[in-house]
Simulated scan of single mutants.
Amino acid sequence: MRLRNKPWAVKLVQEHPESVIDRPDPTQKIDWSKRFADISKPLEIEVGPGKGKFITTMAEKHPEKNFVALELQMTAAGIILRSKLAQNLPNLQILCADAANIDCFFKKHSANTIYLNFSDPWPKTRHEKRRLTYKTFLQKYQTVLQENGQIQFKTDNAGLFAYSLQSMNNYGMHFDFVTVDLHNEKEDILTSNIETEYEHKFASQGNPIYALHADFGVK
C-alpha cells in the first residue's frame, strides 16, 4: 500500500546519509562494515517494512543483531528513520531501494533471516512475478541467506498465503512453522511475535493472520 507523500520525509532522509542509503547503484555491493559498528553481529532484513513498527521494535529488543529495512517508498523510509532516531537504534540501517535487487546489495550468504510482512498480494495473474514469494525472489533470497538462514512470512491474505506455500514448496523449501491463525497459537509463539501496524489492525478486526517460517535446506 502506497503511503501519502510527506515532504518532510524526503528532507529528513537527505539529512541523514549515515542512516539511510538512498537508491544505491545495484552494480555495487554495499560495504555494510561502514554502516554498522559491529559487522560480526547476525544480520536480519525486512523487505517492505512499511512504517517500520516491526523492524524498529526488533532492533530495540535485539541489540545483539544488525537490521536492514529494505523499503522502496521514500515516505516510508522517512517514517522509519524518524523512529530510528527517536529510539536511538544504531543497529538499524534503512535501504531505500527495489527489493528485486536485494542480491545486488548484500554479499552472498550474509544474512540469517529475511522477513516478509504483509507484502502486497498482487492478486492478478499477470502480476505474479511481482509477488515477493515468486520463484525469482526466492532465488535471490537464497543467494543472500546463510545456509541455515530462514524466511519468516506473515499476511492476512489467504490467497497470497496459499500461493506462497505452493511457490516455496515447488522451490524445494523446508517449512519449520506454518499456521493459519497465528494469534491463536500457543503462548510461547505469541510471546515471541512482534506485530506490524497492519497485523494489529487486521487482527483487531477479527481477521486470521497466516504465517510460516521456511528455509532452503542444505545447498
Results as ranks from 00 to 15, higher is better:
M1H: 01
R2P: 02
L3Q: 09
L3I: 12
L3F: 13
K6L: 15
K6C: 09
P7R: 03
A9E: 07
A9V: 09
V10R: 11
K11F: 00
L12H: 14
H16G: 04
P17T: 04
P17C: 12
E18H: 07
E18R: 13
S19H: 15
S19N: 10
I21C: 08
P24V: 13
P24S: 14
P26M: 01
Q28K: 15
K29F: 03
K29A: 12
K29P: 00
I30M: 11
R35V: 14
D38T: 06
D38W: 03
P42K: 09
L43C: 07
I45R: 03
G52A: 04
G52K: 08
K53T: 07
F54Q: 12
F54E: 10
F54D: 02
I55W: 02
I55V: 14
T56V: 13
T57N: 13
E60A: 11
F67K: 04
A69R: 01
E71W: 01
A76I: 05
A76E: 08
A77C: 15
G78I: 03
G78A: 12
I79D: 04
L81G: 09
R82N: 15
N88G: 05
N88E: 13
P90H: 00
N91H: 01
L92K: 05
L92I: 15
Q93N: 07
Q93M: 13
C96W: 01
A97K: 03
A97I: 02
A99K: 10
F106H: 03
H109Y: 09
S110T: 09
S110C: 06
N112M: 11
T113F: 04
D120M: 07
D120K: 01
W122Q: 08
W122H: 00
W122M: 12
W122L: 03
R126A: 06
H127S: 07
E128T: 14
K129S: 07
T133W: 06
K135W: 08
K135P: 04
K135D: 11
T136A: 05
L138M: 07
Q139W: 05
Q142P: 14
E147F: 12
N148D: 14
G149Y: 05
Q150G: 00
I151M: 01
Q152L: 12
Q152C: 14
F161Y: 11
F161L: 04
S164W: 09
L165P: 06
S167K: 12
N169F: 14
N169H: 06
Y171T: 04
Y171W: 10
G172T: 00
M173Q: 01
F175G: 01
F175V: 14
F175P: 00
F177K: 15
V180K: 15
V180W: 08
H183Y: 06
E185L: 08
D188V: 12
D188K: 10
T191K: 13
S192R: 10
S192L: 10
N193K: 07
E195P: 10
E197I: 03
E197H: 12
Y198G: 03
Y198A: 05
E199L: 11
K201P: 02
F202D: 06
A203H: 11
S204W: 12
P208H: 15
L212I: 11
H213C: 10
A214C: 13
D215T: 13
F216H: 05
